[in-house]
Structure formats: structure tokens, C-alpha cells
């Protein structure tokens, strides 16, 4: 599978602070990828850089095999929904669509109108009088009707209630069935990712901790529970993501590497959410040692 998007040792510095460093990710065409990480991990910085909002400090970006900063036509192939929804509050929905039509060469007006109608949003209503969920849907429809091959969404559902989140994802996934776009979105709603994503980028403190198929991530870890051991003893044998100890018991999350596991451990499959939280909970010192 070819990559719709790839970054190579991408870095972005704000003043003295590196928001991203040494960040290499590959997003296969046709995948639905989630970028997750704690606040300040660099999620928005990464997404803003890949849609061409500002040039990276170091490294480079490839979109569909080309350089987005050298080829301005790339802009029309990428749909972006930023965290603060790009809508004009005093416009009506139909004015917003007309704006979309006039600024996008491949605009699909019938599709945009059909989506808005199926969502039950009146075309004559002003954006500011719509609910949060409806505003999110309108900004999604704008990205969809652009007929972009890559849709990038920065925290699209963070401010929505569960029902509105579900409806938003339904609209997005329904369009993906029809048009097969690549989707990249950031989120910190870890529990809801598994049903939507097939690819995962884990960011922590501006660095990539994992980039790959969600399935290998979920299945690539084991939770060991057993009698108390020294962390050193277990790190000698396995790649440890997180270890916690009580007086008598040790609980260790490891990356499965095919090596046999000592039978005194009770081996469990940790859930997706548990593995994600273990990664995100790693401190700077852990990150250094695991590299």
C-alpha cells in the first residue's frame, strides 16, 4: 500500500521549545488513522504542519508522494477541519456552502446539499444558531464536499456529546465507504477509537512512540501479573512499557517479542485502552531509555 502522507524526521520549534522532534510517520492510503497523545504532545502541531499551515523547522513532509510546500495544488487534495471550526458565524448554511463552492475547484454541491438535508439542518439557518453538533457536521460537510483525497481533522469531536460524536463519525464513515479517502484525526477519546481507526500514531512530548496498524498495537502487548520481582530483572528480558509493584505482586506491561515468558507469570491480553494509557503515562526518562 502506498502512503497518502509521510513525514521524515519532522521537527517544529516555537522559540526555544521543540513542539515536535524527530517525528517520522507513515499513513497508508485508504487508512483511517488516529493521532493520540496527552495535551501538549504535539498533535495539533503535526496536523497543522502536514496540511501546509506552516513549514517545519527540520525534516520534510510528503503528501501523495510530493512536497506540499513546493506544489500549491496539494491544497485542493487535502480537507482540513481545525479545532476552532472554520465557519463564519453570521453566514447561513447555504452561504457557507456557496463560500465552499467558490474557494474549491472540485466542489461537489449536490453531495453537500444532500448531506445537509439528510442531517436535517435547514439551509437558511445562521451558523451561530446551530448546535455544537450541527456546526461540527457543517464543517465536516465542507471538508467532504471539497472532494479531498485526504481529510485531516484536529480534535473533531472533543466538544461534542456522545450522541453528536456518533452522528459525526457516521457522516464521516459513510462518505469514506463511498469515496475511499484517507482520514487522519486527532483525539483523546481513547475508548472510542478502536471501532473507527485501523491505524495509530502515538505522540508523547513531541515524539512518536508508535506508528502502525492498530491491530498489531492491540495484540502486540502482554500484561504479566505475578509475584514481586525487580524491574531490572524483567527489563533484561522484555521491553517494559510500565511496571508497578506492591509488596507481594508485580504487574508489568511488556511489548510481546516472541520470547518465551516465565511460567510463573499470569499472562493476560491487556485491552487497547490500557496499553494506550501505559504509553501515555511514560515519563520523559522512560522515553529516553526506550529509544
Amino acid at each position: 500500500m502506498t502512503d497518502a502522507l509521510a513525514t521524515y524526521e519532522l521537527g517544529k520549534r516555537y522559540g526555544k521549545q521543540w513542539a515536535l522532534s524527530d517525528c517520522s510517520v507513515a499513513i497508508p492510503a485508504g487508512s483511517i488513522s488516529a493521532v493520540i497523545g496527552p495535551n501538549g504532545a504535539g498533535k495539533s502541531t503535526l496536523l497543522n504542519a502536514v496540511v501546509g499551515l506552516f513549514p517545519p523547522t527540520t525534516g520534510r513532509i510528503e503528501l501523495f508522494g510530493g512536497d506540499p510546500y513546493a506544489d500549491p495544488s496539494m491544497v485542493s487534495r487535502v480537507g482540513f477541519v481545525s479545532q476552532d471550526r472554520p465557519l463564519y458565524r453570521d453566514f447561513t448554511v447555504s452561504e457557507m456552502l456557496r463560500f465552499g463552492a467558490s474557494t474549491n475547484p472540485r466542489w461537489d454541491q449536490p453531495a453537500a446539499e444532500a448531506r445537509i438535508a439528510s442531517l436535517g439542518i435547514p439551509l437558511g439557518r445562521k451558523i451561530k444558531s446551530l448546535s455544537g453538533g450541527q456546526q461540527a457536521q457543517v464543517s465536516l460537510v465542507l471538508a467532504i464536499a471539497k472532494r479531498a483525497e485526504l481529510i485531516v481533522l484536529d480534535e473533531p469531536v472533543a466538544a461534542l456529546d456522545p450522541l453528536a460524536r456518533r452522528e459525526f463519525m457516521q457522516t464521516l464513515m459513510d462518505d469514506v465507504v463511498e469515496n475511499g479517502q484517507t482520514v487522519v484525526f486527532s483525539s483523546h477519546l481513547v475508548g472510542e477509537l478502536e471501532r473507527v481507526c485501523d491505524h495509530l500514531v502515538l505522540l508523547n512530548q513531541g515524539r512518536v512512540q508508535y506508528c502502525g496498524a492498530l491491530e498489531s498495537f492491540s495484540q502486540g502487548h502482554r500484561l504479566l501479573v505475578g509475584p514481586r520481582v525487580d524491574t531490572a530483572e524483567i527489563t533484561a528480558l522484555h521491553h517494559v512499557i510500565r511496571a508497578s509493584h506492591t509488596e507481594r505482586q508485580s504487574t508489568v506491561l511488556i511489548r510481546a517479542n516472541g520470547k518465551a515468558i516465565d511460567p510463573r507469570w499470569d499472562v493476560r491480553d491487556p485491552g487497547f485502552e490500557e496499553v494506550v494509557l501505559a504509553y501515555l503515562g511514560q515519563r520523559a526518562s522512560d522515553l529516553e531509555s526506550s529509544r
Partner: peptide
């Protein structure tokens, strides 16, 4: 997909 809002 429409019913469950999952990845196609």
C-alpha cells in the same frame, strides 16, 4: 457503517 459508525 451507517448503523454502527465504524471503520468500513
Amino acid at each position: 457503517v451507517a448503523q454502527l459508525a465504524i471503520n468500513p
